[in-house]
């Protein structure tokens, strides 16, 4: 069961069972919606920027442990960073999940915990769903 325990590390299960920054969002608050048609996961993000920083990120929706935990971890680790930093972080994290670059040991524990998902290629989409959504939300705000 080694692979499975790597996939569902304690930190991931912790975020799944007690998601941070999760809140029932009204339609007006929602910045972006993302679907994972493979599994029927649905995620909604409310992103608020202030003075060039991502001030708050909140999420709601339905999904598997990986997608839910990843959304929670993303909000936890990116809130308060500048919009530019968040853009770089999302790009780096998604590239690492896709195997296009190495995971950097200096990254937050939450990101490193998701490394185990890479062994399950079908689940990478679950782990990156929130991140792609955040990227889209920020692109819209720039426009």
């Amino acid at each position: 069961m080694d692979d499975l325990e790597q996939l569902y590390q304690d930190l991931i299960l912790d975020h799944y069972k007690q998601p941070r920054h999760r809140q029932a969002l009204t339609d007006e608050e929602v910045s972006v919606e993302a679907d994972n048609p493979l599994c029927g996961d649905q995620l909604r993000l409310a992103v608020e920027c202030d003075a060039g920083r991502v001030a708050t990120i909140r999420h709601d929706g339905k999904g598997c442990a990986i997608s839910q935990a990843s959304a929670s971890m993303m909000c936890e680790t990116l809130t308060g960073r500048t919009v530019e930093e968040v853009g770089v972080a999302v790009r780096d994290f998604v590239a690492a999940m896709r195997g296009e670059r190495e995971f950097d040991p200096s990254w937050p524990d939450e990101w490193l915990a998701l490394q185990g998902v890479c062994k399950f290629p079908l689940r990478v989409k679950c782990a990156t769903l929130a991140w792609h959504a955040l990227q889209k939300a920020l692109e819209r705000q720039v426009e």
């Binding site: 069961m1 692979d3 499975l4 996939l7 569902y8 599994c39 996961d41 339905k62 999904g63 598997c64 442990a65 990986i66 839910q68 399950f120 689940r123 679950c126």
Partner: peptide, 12 residues
Amino acid sequence: LHPHDLSQYVDQ
């Protein structure tokens, strides 16, 4: 339990 997590688990 999300179906994906269940499916992944029983696959092991």
